[in-house]
């Protein structure tokens, strides 16, 4: 684990380091996807298409759990911790504001870890379906996961499920908007000769 970047690091070094944080996070989403019941029964082509269009959105949900509101820092999977001020200095201000707004809204639902995990599975299989070959199989998987999420929330919070579940589903278009607005942000990787 690395501590918060020292003041002596250049902006370029911070940008490279921050860019590299995404690599283990993306790999974790791939492993997570493989654990979703039914995901690996899709064709490899469709698995790849769902991951390519849905990973950013899953990362945004994941990001909410990596954010420390008291310290105003974000800790990535490789242990790197960044204060928000550092991330803003990288030019990520608009993306950060959007993620924090989203985190606040999602935070009000107070999801348990298993509810959050099932929600992330729904997010992944509900991403942009253009390019999917077997639409029927993906839609069947979507419906199964959405039913499971509804069932889990209803069993755990029978008095609240009528309000929480629709609010959860309303986050799906928010995530697609975040993806469309921000996934073209630039990262930088140093290539050593």
């Amino acid at each position: 684990a690395c501590p918060v970047s020292a003041a002596s690091r250049s902006g370029q070094q911070i940008w490279e380091s921050f860019s590299q944080c995404f690599t283990p996070a993306v790999r974790e989403v791939v492993e997570f996807a493989k654990g979703i019941p039914g995901f690996q029964e899709l064709s490899q082509h469709d698995q790849v298409m769902l991951l390519k269009s849905g990973t950013f959105q899953v990362l945004m949900v994941r990001f909410c759990t990596m954010f420390n509101p008291e310290e105003r820092t974000v800790t990535f999977l490789n242990g790197q911790t960044y204060p928000l001020s550092t991330l803003r200095a990288l030019g990520m201000g608009a993306l950060l504001d959007a993620i924090f707004d989203f985190s606040e809204k999602l935070g009000t639902l107070r999801l348990e870890p298993d509810e959050m995990a099932l929600f992330m599975a729904v997010v992944l299989v509900s991403a942009d379906l253009s390019g999917i070959v077997d639409m029927g199989a993906v839609e069947q998987l979507q419906e199964g996961l959405i039913r499971a999420l509804h069932s889990l929330i209803h069993c755990r919070r029978p008095d609240e499920s009528a309000s929480i579940f629709p609010k959860l589903l309303l986050h799906l278009p928010d995530l697609r908007t975040l993806n469309n607005l921000h996934s073209d942000k630039l990262l930088a990787f140093r290539i050593d000769s």
Binding site: Q12, E16, S19, F22, T23, V26, R27, V30, Q44, Q47, V48, L51, K52, T55, F56, H182, S183, D184, K185, L186, L187, A188, F189, R190, I191, D192, S193
Partner: peptide
Amino acid sequence: PKTHRVMTLADHISHIITQDFARNQ
């Protein structure tokens, strides 16, 4: 001098996913 490769977050995600599936084939 250091050389840098610049890519979008979307392209980086796509690259990692392609790499992962190719490695596991």
